[in-house]
Simulated assay, not measured.
Amino acid sequence: MKLLDIAEVAQAAGVTPSTLRYYEEKGLIQPVARHGLRRQYGPQVLQQLSLVAMGKMAGFSLDEVAAMFGPTGRPDMPRNDLLRRAERMQAQARQLDALAQMLRHVAECPAPTHLDCDKFQQLLRLATATQKRRRRSGQSPSR
């Protein structure tokens, strides 16, 4: 098994060596040896770092990602948690799409002012209703 030096791992993963040391502190990765003072990693570390990157992209904290790795460093992802996260992401994507459409309408609206536009008035009422619904359901409002 060819060991990878910390600099090689950092370059291959697109992170800094200090990020790798931090990930080690968090329990996300572990060196398998040292060459002098330099950490050496097994080739599986690149896959682990890809999983960390994917978890971060999905909105998981580093602590949540660390909890997904079993004692062997292999992922042990609770599928129900992943499904719930995916559903929240899809809901957020729908909300962002609706917001983008609203902004596009506002930008292209031929009315003299946005407040004179019937569709814009409907969008304002919808935004208020959505905010009230979130507050009643206990969701934290976006700030």
Rank of each mutant, 00 (worst) to 15 (best):
N80D: 15
L28I: 02
R85F: 00
S140N: 07
Q139H: 14
E108M: 09
L124I: 11
A67G: 14
Q101S: 11
V15L: 11
Q131A: 09
L46I: 05
Q92R: 15
M89D: 11
P75W: 06
A129N: 04
I29K: 00
S140T: 13
Q131P: 00
Q101N: 11
G42K: 06
L4Q: 01
S140W: 08
R133L: 14
K26N: 00
S142F: 06
K56A: 07
M68L: 09
G73R: 15
Q95V: 12
R21H: 00
C109K: 01
T130I: 06
G27N: 03
H105S: 10
G36V: 09
R125Q: 08
Q90K: 15
P31S: 01
R79K: 10
D81L: 13
L28W: 01
L103F: 07
Q101F: 06
R135Q: 12
Q44M: 08
K56M: 04
I6R: 06
R94W: 09
R79I: 15
R135D: 11
E24R: 00
L96V: 06
Q121M: 06
Y22A: 00
Q90I: 15
L49R: 03
R74C: 08
R94A: 15
G59M: 08
Q139S: 11
L3D: 13
A107N: 03
L20N: 01
Y23K: 04
Q131E: 12
T19E: 00
E108F: 01
R135P: 02
L123C: 03
A111Y: 02
P75F: 06
E108A: 13
L83S: 15
A86P: 02
D116V: 03
Q11W: 09
A10H: 04
R34F: 06
C117Q: 12
V32Y: 02
Q47V: 09
A98F: 11
K132V: 07
Q101A: 13
S140V: 10
K56F: 05
G27T: 02
F120C: 10
R134L: 09
M89A: 12
R38M: 07
L28E: 01
P31H: 02
D97L: 14
K56G: 03
R136H: 07
R39V: 00
V45P: 04
M54N: 09
P17R: 05
D118F: 01
P43N: 06
D116L: 08
A111V: 05
T113W: 09
R21S: 00
P78C: 14
G36T: 08
A86W: 01
